[in-house]
């Protein structure tokens, strides 16, 4: 059986978030290609439902990447994004699912290193936790 690759979904804002990703892609450091990015106009547009839906559709982990909080292109968009992420983490904890499957990150356009760090930390979580399924096995 081929080795299972972690399923990582990232919602990235098209301002500093995607700029940071682009710079990371142009740099020499490589990041894990299992990450799938979804472009959003602003992390304030990310709804809790989008994150839950991604998990329901099979993502192991989901992250949201927006501008730095005091330097957000839309002023408070990334603060909104963080609040949604925190709310979903709370819901997951209440249902007995590891809240660390969902995280919020902030970066500026020039922080390429940050994107590498985000991907590797989320990949670690995905590999450690695996897909959401009953303890001790069960099908995906």
């Amino acid at each position: 059986m081929p080795e299972r690759r972690p399923k990582i979904i990232g919602f990235c804002c098209e301002k500093h978030g995607l700029d940071c990703v682009t710079l990371a892609a142009r740099s020499e450091r490589q990041y894990d290609a299992s990450v799938r990015l979804i472009r959003v106009p602003c992390t304030g547009r990310v709804d809790g439902m989008h994150i839950l839906q991604a998990l329901e559709d099979g993502a192991d982990v989901v992250f949201v990447l927006g501008c730095l909080e005091k330097n957000c292109y839309y002023d408070t968009g990334s603060i909104e994004g963080r609040k949604r992420v925190e709310y979903v983490k709370g819901m997951l904890a209440e249902t007995g699912i590891e809240p660390e499957r969902v995280e919020m990150f902030n970066a500026s356009s020039s922080m390429a290193w940050k994107f590498h760090d985000i991907v590797s930390s989320m990949k670690d979580v995905a590999e450690r936790l695996g897909p959401i399924r009953p303890k001790g096995g069960g099908s995906e």
Binding site: M49, L52, E56, M91, L92, T95, G96, I97, P134, G138
Partner: peptide
Amino acid sequence: EKEVNMLVSAMRLKNRKDG
């Protein structure tokens, strides 16, 4: 609507987790 959808989704995930 939003809260209903989120609740349904979270409960489905819980069911998946609990088998």
